[in-house]
Amino acid sequence: MESITGLILAKYNYWMYISLMMVGLYAMIAKNNLVKKIIGMNILQTAIILFYISIGAKKGATIPIIMHSEGHGHEAVHAVQYINPLPHVLMLTAIVVSVATLGVALALAIRLYARFGTLEEDEINDQVREAP
């Protein structure tokens, strides 16, 4: 019993990241509406961000801002005391890129709506096939 709860606690974040990724993938592939597809794409991105942040987490460590005092220097920094900052840096930029791609994707969706009058993928496909 002890080992099972230990296993669940150790892996729970990873399982949740996998289920979020599957939700995003399902929305991207199976949904018919373009805005739903874009939401799925964003959920997939955030799932991967969640994975990286989970890797960066450390038990018993504090946030990666070095404690320091004005004037008389600081004590030697031990890496064990601070959460790994590297995944945070990579994911911070990934979030900003995700909002940029979101803007471009929505712009494309608006152009498609202006051209075809619908956001449903199958209707757009029908109209494209009918056109010579």
Partner: peptide, 26 residues
């Protein structure tokens, strides 16, 4: 995921490459 290091393990490989250097010298 069963092969992944446990959540919050300070000795996971991700914490052992360049990250400690950044933390200690930044």
């Amino acid at each position: 995921t069963l092969d992944f290091p446990g959540w919050g393990d300070p000795n996971a490989p991700a914490h052992l490459h360049v990250a400690p250097e950044y933390l200690e010298q930044a």
